[in-house]
Nucleic acid binder design. Structure first.
Lengths: 138, 138
DNA sequence: CCGTATCCAGGCGGATACTG
DNA sequence: CAGTATCCGCCTGGATACGG
């Protein structure tokens, strides 16, 4: 218990000194938080649409094909909670609600844009890699 | 059916000419593909770890807390299929398998890094926004 | 050591109906 | 118009056991 813990040579050979998550600033903790924030099905599309300026609920609903009212609402609530957009409700009849990117949200969009740009540029490479993988000899 | 389709003035007022997904290069189609590719629970962590160099399955398994063998395998297969990493199996006993980032994978990692960096830098802002949202008066 | 096979729970998200 | 409420199918991913 005092001297020479684990002198087993096999352990020394198999166990590499565990270092934190290479190349990410925060050991991967905040990465997951961030991707969870915008990695869901609709958030990134909402953010992209709002880049041009504030939009009403219905406008977002119209321009995001396939989204349900429920999911659009949930998505907008989460983005509002994270401070990425603001929700402004005008007490009229019929009601009008406008969503607008905050400075934080705009920053997020710009950063995401670089990522999307990369994805677009290399989409062909990835597609062909997939095809090779799927049609390779077993 | 022939002449003057939809002369209803209300339609003209409510329907904004639908334009594609603002600010994204490809109308949002490939964005979803891309996020689906690395927006899952483990991919980005694997990519981060492999930045330092090739790693064995067990090393990845050890350094990603909480991952199951099943999910690590699935994640690695998908990344291999997309051409982001290579899998090299050495026919020994016991078997040894090494995973290594491709040039494509390294490019993905670099792009993702900028995104992660932004997330890290603004994490406090987002956290405090969440807290404000959760504790606001109803 | 490096997986695959099987089972199963939880939650994401769609469809629908209903309200202020 | 802009949501909320409810139900429910499906898929992701965890646990476990087993195989090369």
């Amino acid at each position: 218990m005092f001297a020479s813990q684990d002198p087993d040579p096999r352990m020394a050979a198999t166990r590499i000194p565990p270092h934190p998550c290479a190349s990410w600033p925060d050991n991967g903790q905040g990465i997951r938080d961030t991707l969870d924030r915008v990695g869901d099905k609709w958030s990134i599309l909402v953010i992209g649409l709002l880049a041009a300026g504030p939009l009403r609920f219905g406008a977002l609903y119209d321009q995001i094909p396939g989204v349900s009212q429920r999911m659009l609402t949930l998505t907008l609530r989460r983005l509002e909670r994270d401070g990425l957009l603001t929700r402004t409700s005008y007490p009229e009849m019929p009601p009008r609600v406008e969503y607008q990117l905050t400075a934080l949200g705009e920053g997020m969009r710009e950063t995401a844009y670089a990522f999307v740009q990369w994805a677009t540029d290399h989409n062909d490479e990835i597609e062909s890699s997939r095809h090779r993988y799927d049609t390779r000899q077993r």
